[in-house]
Each structure stands twice: as C-alpha cells, then as structure tokens.
C-alpha cells in the first residue's frame, strides 16, 4: 500500500474479536424475544379473533334458538 493511502482509522481495533459464546447469547436472546412477541400476539391479535369467533357463534346460536 502506498504510504499516502494509509488511513489509520481503518486500523483501529482490527484485532479485537467477540468471544464465540456471544453469538449464542445474541441468538438465544432473539429466540426469547420472538417467543415473548408470539405469546403477546396470542393474547392480543389472536385473542380478539377468538373472541370474535366465540361471539359470532353465540349470536348465531341465539338467533337460531329465537327463530326456531
């Protein structure tokens, strides 16, 4: 490399590497977050869907009972 092209900023900390176990930690945290989001979703969006289904079934059966 030409001395004039040398950029010392590019050489900062180049030998520092994360320990191998950190990869597992990050991916495990992500899996946990996905699980939590999934559970939260179950009790919000999906719960509304289930409630709507139950309500529709109830209304439908009441309607049938009333109108024979």
């Amino acid at each position: 490399m030409n001395a004039e092209d040398f950029n010392p900023f590019k050489s900062l900390n180049v030998h520092d590497e994360l320990p191998e176990e950190d990869r597992k930690k990050v991916l495990d945290t992500i899996d946990t977050m996905k699980f939590i989001i999934g559970v939260a979703d179950l009790f919000t969006t999906k719960q509304v869907e289930v409630n709507t289904d139950i309500f529709s079934a109830f209304v439908s059966s009441s309607f049938k009972e009333t109108n024979g």
């Binding site: 520092d16 590497e17 994360l18 950190d22 990869r23 990050v26 991916l27 992500i30 899996d31 996905k34």
Partner: peptide
C-alpha cells in the same frame, strides 16, 4: 433465527 446468524457472522465483530 438462522438467517440472522448469517448477518451476525458478517457484522458482529465490526459492530464490536
């Protein structure tokens, strides 16, 4: 998550 693992391999040390 395996796909994010690939991004981890590319960028984790740079971020660190």
């Amino acid at each position: 998550t395996v796909y994010f693992g690939a991004l981890y391999d590319r960028y984790a040390n740079k971020v660190y």
